[in-house]
């Protein structure tokens, strides 16, 4: 039961960082390989602006 968790701790870390760069920067500074995914939560727009953008974009 604990084997996978132990393996995780003993193996080299492979990290995917989604969003905030701060976490990736911190790991990179400790020589951990990080794949960075540029993402942020979608902006919540007023419904009227959503409709306008759907028409214009």
């Amino acid at each position: 039961m604990n084997e996978p968790k132990q393996a995780l701790l003993s193996a080299d870390l492979k990290v995917i960082n989604i969003g905030l760069e701060l976490f990736a920067d911190s790991l990179a500074a400790q020589a951990v390989d990080v794949v960075r995914v540029d993402w942020k939560p979608p902006l919540e727009l007023e419904p009227e602006l959503e409709r306008i953008l759907d028409d214009l974009l």
Binding site: E48, L49, I52, L53, D55
Partner: peptide, 8 residues
């Protein structure tokens, strides 16, 4: 946002 509304 104001400009976009005016454009529309």
């Amino acid at each position: 946002k104001k400009a976009l509304r005016a454009f529309f």
